[in-house]
Simulated assay, not measured.
Amino acid sequence: MQTQTKGEFGGIGIEVTMENELVKVITPIDDTPGAKAGILAGDYISAINGQQVRGMKLNDAVEKMRGAVNTPIKLTILRKGVDKPIEMSVMREVIPIRAVKSRVDGDVGYLRVISFTEKTFDDLQAAIAKIKKQVPDDKLKGYVLDLRLNPGGLLDQAIYVSDAFLQKGEIVSTRSRDPEDTRRFNATPGDLTDGKPLIVLVNGGSA
């Protein structure tokens, strides 16, 4: 939980999925140990520290790649066009977790909030500013805020994110048996989207 809310961990900086019982690299994150070591999108990791990946769940494989900063990890990589497995040693570093991902889809700005960490609101502000630079205001029709599979996190960050899209009204309140412990959080004037339409996506995995 501390890793999720603080927004960083010790690792090598690659986004992965599971395919054919192997860990497939979706993309190495720029300026991380994985990228510097030469790991490429499309590579398959077949072993971690000598242990075969086949039979592992994705989460278990990811946990094995994480660890204390400045400790090495040995990977066996299968790469298309290369006959023999590639043996690679990579030193773990602090990897910032991207709390918000964004893109422009035609004339709509897409914002995916992955979790509410210490950096979520700052990342959201940066993502919206980036979208505004990419699409002129008169062309930008609105935004999609994707909260699907968001496990939650820090309450204050969830409040800041909500406030970013609201002009007024109560965002959330916490109540207890003692009335003095009741707290209410209200939206403040100002909307980062400048009043553009907003669609919010949630599912059963949204906290």
Rank of each mutant, 00 (worst) to 15 (best):
K36Q: 12
V202N: 05
N150Y: 08
T174E: 09
L155Q: 15
L140I: 08
G142K: 09
G109C: 12
T120Y: 03
G7A: 05
S46D: 05
G153L: 06
I199K: 15
D43Y: 06
E87Y: 08
D107H: 03
V53N: 07
D163L: 00
L124G: 09
K132S: 04
T3G: 00
N49D: 15
M65Y: 03
R103A: 10
V25Y: 02
T17A: 12
R103V: 00
P85C: 01
S115G: 10
K119H: 14
D194V: 01
G190D: 10
V25C: 07
R103H: 04
N20G: 04
I39V: 14
A127H: 00
E15Q: 12
Y44Q: 09
G195K: 07
I97G: 05
G10C: 07
I26T: 11
L22C: 01
M56I: 10
G81C: 07
G55D: 09
V172P: 03
Y143L: 06
S173F: 13
T5N: 14
F165C: 08
A37I: 09
N70A: 09
L40Y: 07
Q157F: 04
G205V: 09
G38E: 05
V135R: 03
G153R: 03
D107P: 00
G13R: 01
K74G: 08
G67D: 01
T188V: 14
Q125G: 14
K119Q: 09
F9Y: 15
N70C: 02
G10I: 05
D123A: 14
I48W: 00
T188A: 13
T3L: 12
P179N: 06
V25K: 02
R148A: 05
I12P: 06
A61Q: 08
I97K: 13
D123I: 06
N203G: 14
D107G: 00
G55R: 06
K6S: 11
V100H: 00
I14K: 02
A99P: 11
F165H: 06
G38S: 07
S102M: 11
A99I: 06
